[in-house]
Structures are given as structure tokens and as C-alpha cells.
């Protein structure tokens, strides 16, 4: 890992809430253009780690560098502007808005017009809206959301909302996509769809994906690299085949049996 250039370098991150350490000396490197999975039992600190990267938590010590820029201490919106997009585990969409508006919201920083131009709307503002609408339509096409374009998000089914959540993160046009359990609570067909989307994102858009997932079958199938966390500590890392046979991982998960 170290000989390759990593896009995101997490170095000795400690996150503690009072006396409780959610993350202890976690060091992870994420390569560009690859699918990196972070797995671990419940409460291992996976989501906390994502929260540290995307700025919702401030790491107590250590550094997180994205393309050489220090992320610790930055606000989520600043980190988002650097090109890190996040899809939440518990759907955090704007439930009163349509799918289209949800995606247009993700274009916020790409819409280049001032407040005064928006007052008159016609002219630059309208052009920008149309250009970005075209981009959003591209994402809608990519994520196969055409039929839900104008549906209010709050009225959609869980599986579709999860997909909208992913689409919205993708609409930010990120360099790094953080997916927090995109397949939680889905049936097999929906899971296969999401896997297909993740592989497409990697292949067509050349976006690095960080995936947190409990479905180990999926993780072992699609990941390029896997990190295993347990009780806030990194217990193993490597390519899927190596990790699956790691005795520490097997102990953490099932206590003695082989994973796959």
C-alpha cells in the first residue's frame, strides 16, 4: 500500500468521546480509482471514521489528508467542496423536495451565479441552471431514476431513497465517494443493482469509493482492498482473499470459523 500514492491518508487518528475511544490509532490509505471497503462488527467505529473524514466529527488527534490537504478541523461543507461526497447510512435526504431538487441541491457549489443574478433569474442564472440540470439528468440516467424524477422523496420506497441518496452524493461530482452501508435492509435484487452501480461508478467515472458494508459476500467480491476495524482499532488489512483468512478477522467476526 505504501509504495502506491494514496488519495486519502488517514494517519494515527484517535477519536475519543470523554474517556471512550471510538477510534484508536487508525491509519488507513485510500487509493484513487479503487474500491476500498471498511468492515467490522457493529460498533467497531466504521461510521465514526467516515464522520471524521467528512468533518462531522473532529478527530481528537492524528491527521487526515486528502490530496495533501489537511481535513481535520474543516467543516463538512468545506470538505465537500474539496471533492469528498458522502452517502449517509440513515437516509438523510431533503424529504419535502422532489428527487430532481435533491440532486440539484448537490450542484450548489457548481452553480456559479451570485445572489443578485438569482433575483433576476433570466440570463446567467438560467443558463447555469440549465447546464447543471443537464448534468443532473445524466446522473438520473446513470442511476436509473427517470421515473421518480419529479416524485417527492418522502413518498418513495426505502430502496429507491437509498439509491437517490447515492445519486445525490454522485451529483456532487466527487473524487472520493464515501458510502455508508448503501445496501442495508435491501433485498437481493436491490443489492445487485447497487453493486452494479458501484462497479459502474468505479469503471466509468473513475471515482474512488470507500464502502462500509456488512454483507461480506459483496465486500469480498467487489473490493480492491479491505480494512477491518474492531473496537476502534485496525485489526487487519489487505486484499479480500488475505483478509478473509486472517485469524484476527475470523475471531472478531465469528470466533474460529472461516468467513466464506
Amino acid at each position: 500500500m505504501s509504495e502506491k500514492k494514496s488519495q486519502l491518508v488517514i494517519d494515527n487518528v484517535i477519536l475519543s468521546f470523554g474517556g471512550l475511544n471510538a477510534l484508536t490509532n487508525v491509519s488507513i490509505g485510500i487509493e484513487s480509482g479503487a474500491i476500498t471497503s471498511i468492515i467490522g462488527p457493529n460498533g467497531a467505529g466504521k461510521t465514526s471514521l467516515l464522520n471524521c473524514i467528512s468533518g462531522f466529527y473532529k478527530a481528537t488527534s492524528g491527521s487526515i489528508k486528502f490530496e495533501g490537504i489537511e481535513l481535520v478541523g474543516k467543516s463538512p461543507y468545506q470538505i465537500s467542496k474539496l471533492g469528498i461526497a458522502r452517502a449517509f447510512q440513515n437516509i438523510e435526504l431533503f424529504s419535502g423536495l422532489s428527487v430532481l431538487d435533491n440532486l440539484m441541491l448537490a450542484r450548489h457549489t457548481h452553480l456559479k451565479y451570485s445572489f443578485f443574478e438569482s433575483l433576476f433569474f433570466y440570463g446567467k442564472c438560467q443558463n447555469q441552471e440549465i447546464i447543471n440540470r443537464e448534468y443532473v439528468e445524466g446522473i438520473i440516467d446513470f442511476m436509473e431514476l427517470e421515473e421518480y424524477r419529479k416524485a417527492v422523496v418522502g413518498e418513495l420506497s426505502y430502496g429507491i431513497r437509498k439509491r437517490v441518496e447515492m445519486a445525490r452524493a454522485l451529483t456532487l461530482d466527487p473524487k472520493l465517494l464515501l458510502l455508508d452501508e448503501p445496501m442495508a435492509g435491501m433485498n437481493l435484487g436491490e443489492k445487485e443493482d447497487i453493486v452494479r452501480f458501484i462497479l459502474d461508478i468505479k469503471a466509468e467515472r473513475d471515482i474512488a469509493v470507500v464502502l462500509i458494508e456488512h454483507d461480506l459476500g459483496v465486500v469480498m467480491d467487489i473490493s480492491d482492498y479491505v480494512y477491518v476495524l474492531d473496537f476502534g482499532m485496525k485489526i487487519a488489512s489487505g486484499i479480500p482473499d488475505v483478509v478473509a483468512k486472517d485469524p484476527a478477522v475470523i475471531t472478531a467476526y465469528v470466533g474460529g470459523e472461516s468467513l466464506i
Partner: peptide, 19 residues
Amino acid sequence: RALIAVRDNDRAADAMGIN
């Protein structure tokens, strides 16, 4: 849209690059 985003879900708005 940013106004509505902040009303509906300010955490997500933050992640969308909206202050």
C-alpha cells in the same frame, strides 16, 4: 433550494457543500 435544504436536513445540507 439551500434554504429548504437547511430546513429539511441541515446535516445533509452541510455535506452538500452548503454552509
